Amino acid sequence: MTAGDLVKEMISYYEGDPKRIQHFLKVYAYAKIIGEGEGLDEETQDILETAAITHDIGIKLSEKKYQSSSGKYQEIEGPAEAEKMLTRLGYDKARMERVCYLIGHHHTYDHIDGMDYQILVEADFLVNLAEEHAKEETICSVRDKIFRTGTGKFMLEKIFSKKS
Rank of each mutant, 00 (worst) to 15 (best):
M1P: 14
T2S: 15
T2F: 09
T2G: 13
D5R: 14
D5W: 08
D5C: 05
D5E: 15
V7Y: 05
K8S: 15
K8I: 12
M10T: 02
M10R: 01
I11F: 09
S12M: 09
Y13S: 03
E15C: 15
D17S: 14
R20T: 11
R20N: 13
R20H: 15
Q22D: 15
Q22K: 15
Q22I: 04
H23R: 11
K26D: 10
Y28W: 10
Y28T: 07
Y28P: 05
A31T: 05
K32Y: 09
G35C: 08
E38L: 01
L40C: 05
D41H: 09
E42T: 04
E42M: 05
E43H: 04
E43F: 00
E43Q: 13
T44M: 12
D46Q: 13
I47W: 02
E49I: 08
A52L: 04
I59M: 11
S62G: 10
K64L: 15
Y66P: 01
Q67L: 14
Q67P: 06
Q67H: 15
S68L: 12
S68T: 13
S68Y: 11
S70T: 13
Q74W: 02
E77F: 07
G78C: 01
E81W: 00
A82C: 14
K84I: 15
K84V: 13
K84W: 09
M85Y: 04
M85W: 01
L86A: 06
T87M: 03
T87V: 08
T87Q: 05
R88C: 07
G90I: 01
Y91N: 04
A94F: 09
M96R: 12
M96D: 08
E97M: 09
E97F: 12
V99C: 00
C100L: 07
Y101A: 06
Y101T: 08
L102W: 04
I103P: 01
G104D: 03
H106C: 09
T108N: 14
T108E: 08
H111Q: 10
G114C: 12
M115V: 01
D116R: 07
Y117Q: 01
Y117E: 02
Q118K: 08
I119S: 02
L120Q: 03
V121R: 13
E122G: 04
E122L: 12
A123L: 07
L126C: 10
L126E: 04
L126A: 07
L126F: 09
V127N: 12
L129I: 02
A130S: 14
E131R: 13
E131H: 07
H133I: 06
E136L: 10
E136F: 02
E136Y: 09
E137R: 13
T138D: 15
I139V: 14
C140M: 12
C140I: 03
S141F: 14
V142S: 08
V142T: 04
D144H: 11
D144T: 02
K145L: 08
I146G: 04
F147G: 01
R148G: 00
R148Y: 11
T149A: 06
G150Q: 13
G150Y: 08
G150D: 12
T151H: 06
K153C: 03
K153G: 02
K153N: 04
M155K: 09
E157S: 01
E157Y: 10
K158I: 00
I159Y: 10
K163Y: 14
S164E: 13
